[in-house]
Amino acid sequence: MIGGSVAVASTCCLGAVVPPLAMLDWHAVFFMLFAAAACGCALAVVLADNVVRMAFYLVLSLGATAGLFFLAGAEFVGAMQLMIYVGGTLVLLVFGVMLTAQAPFVSIKTSAAEKAFAGLLGGALLTLLLVAALSVEPWRRPGSVGPTEPSATPLGMALVGVRVDEPPAHSPAVGRSGYLLPFEIISVHLLVVLVAAAYLARAKRRKTPRPVEMVASVEPPVSVAEHAAIGREAAVGAPARSGSVLVGGGS
């Protein structure tokens, strides 16, 4: 969005000198902007090795997709994408990244052969999908219907079981059309996930000592004393129990 406004501002100046810009369709310009951001960042997710960077690119990609949703008039879905996907899910994911971000795992390299094979497969799949996407004529050519003011109300009504966007003839009785049942199911589902997440994060008293060899395999334990000795010329021992010390250990 910020990019959008800056782009508008700069093209404004350009537009005065370059007449063809007058023909620009702003909808298309912003679509291209967001589409390029979404696709470029998705590609970067694939190509990046560092898992934190992958998460960052994913944020940009999903954020740009939210912009696409806004452009398509699905404002509620766009805002939801920002709120739940970018703001919630990805923060969760980043938490996961950081919890497991041991130096050896931050970037796990994939072999070149695997990459080439995956690229080949992906290319084939992409071709297939593109052919399908571009082969239907009415899809390529938008109609003359201008954008109407979008509203989240029909969607909200549909989620509680009333379809207001369709003529009454098509919709059955109130409560049995729309998405009331899926809505309820998904609510319960979310509750279950919430409980599961709380279960996962619960604290328990330590009963058995931590398996030492596993810790060791991750990172050799460094003692406080060892660590303290680094960068110090004369290591001063920690003050022991000094009931009646006359002369300080620091001297």
Binding site: M23, L24, D25, H27, V45, V46, A72, L126, A133, W139
Partner: peptide
């Protein structure tokens, strides 16, 4: 940039995201 995007344009983006 001269004309508004249609469904196809979105489908292309969707396809790229999917394949990625």
């Amino acid at each position: 940039l001269g004309h508004p995007p249609g469904v196809s344009h979105y489908l292309v983006v969707g396809a790229i995201l999917f394949v990625c």
